[in-house]
Design a protein around this nucleic acid. Sequence first.
DNA 1: CGGCTTATTGACATACGTCAACTATTGTGG
DNA 2: CCACAATAGTTGACGTATGTCAATAAGCCG
Lengths: 228, 228
Amino acid sequence: MREDDLETIERAQLFQPLEPQLRARLLQGAFTQRLPRGAELFQQGETPAFLHVVLEGRVGLVGVAADRRETLVEIFGPGEVLIAPAVVLELPYLMSARVVDAARLVMIPAKPFQQALHEEPALALALAQMLARHWRLLARQVKELKLKSAPQRLGCYLLALTPKRAGGAMIRLPEDRRTAAARLGMTPESLSRAFAQLRTIGVAGSGRHVTISDLKTLTEFCQEDDLR
Amino acid sequence: MREDDLETIERAQLFQPLEPQLRARLLQGAFTQRLPRGAELFQQGETPAFLHVVLEGRVGLVGVAADRRETLVEIFGPGEVLIAPAVVLELPYLMSARVVDAARLVMIPAKPFQQALHEEPALALALAQMLARHWRLLARQVKELKLKSAPQRLGCYLLALTPKRAGGAMIRLPEDRRTAAARLGMTPESLSRAFAQLRTIGVAGSGRHVTISDLKTLTEFCQEDDLR
DNA sequence: CGGCTTATTGACATACGTCAACTATTGTGG
DNA sequence: CCACAATAGTTGACGTATGTCAATAAGCCG
């Protein structure tokens, strides 16, 4: 494992609160893997063999229906852990994981990890906190899907990409538009139209580049509760 | 606290793996509360003061948009813990909690609970497992919202109410139809029409009583991956 | 430059929400 | 126990948001 890999892992919210020697113990038997866009790390229905930590690139969680239709549920980047719930519960994955941007990952064997979970209080606590954060990501998404229109969801997505809450902003989208559309639960066509609609309230975009003239106006349009 | 309350708490998945003396310690300073249908336990945006455990009745998690429109995200019954993520992270609730069926709850003060989380490995582990299960509930819901039609979501909901996977079934709905509709992300009118559509594949319902002539057929209609 | 993918736009289909009327069910007071 | 009100559920007519399909335009790369 490379030097800067360890740094990334240290920054990962799951590992950051741990003692260095515990981190080292977890990484016993772990290895890294480099995967191109489109690669599948695991498939929905499989039983976890590893806990995956993203070092570089981005990985999407893809839900698959019985008729093979798919949806992109969440995207995780460097420092994030992939679907800990399945690993913790030793249950089949509810989703597949597919590389969105060429990625490097740490694969931590599941069994020793589960073992450590029972023996290392700090790990269990850090994991609980990570799961709590991940729960909130999904909770927010369910609320958006059920309460907001496509243009509003796009607005929320743009707002999430800037730390500021007032004034203007310039953003670089972290993914191409078809990927963003999938993540937002709409077709690329609908995303295009959603952008067209936001243009009327000062959102200008071309390619991955987006400028927002007034964040306040957009926040209002999106009916955003600004709970982080 | 009543005798049978303790039994309910013992059955709660969060507390079941704990030593009796640890359970007792957590319940120091806890008290029970009885609330009628419609009561709000807490509101979205508030910072958690208690960890809530449902003893009796049912409590819904309600997401609220800035324009006051609401959606019912999940319903929890006896033995379930209400929104542990906010308590764990000491962050504002992302949703409100509203009593759906007259309920009795244990209110465990948040601070001592957070304290215990750092001191009691068994608690942190049990919590991680509970959060993992709750994450899967939401993950499944996101998949359904993004991949399935209203009648298919209704079908999944009905299937979730029976442990069987083949043959026929008779079900009693745990909530009235307007509540079920809200949970499923549709209007009562759409729920009615969804039932009408399922009638063509052998689902007969009247009031809270539903009979399914063939679970296989329904499972297929719903495009259900039968991952539990 | 030509050929690829990706984004946009338009025409149209459809699922679902909305509003209103009607019916069934439940609960309540005489 | 009935009468009636209140509530919950159903059905129909209609509007709107979003998906689908097809054509076009715009980037990107060999």
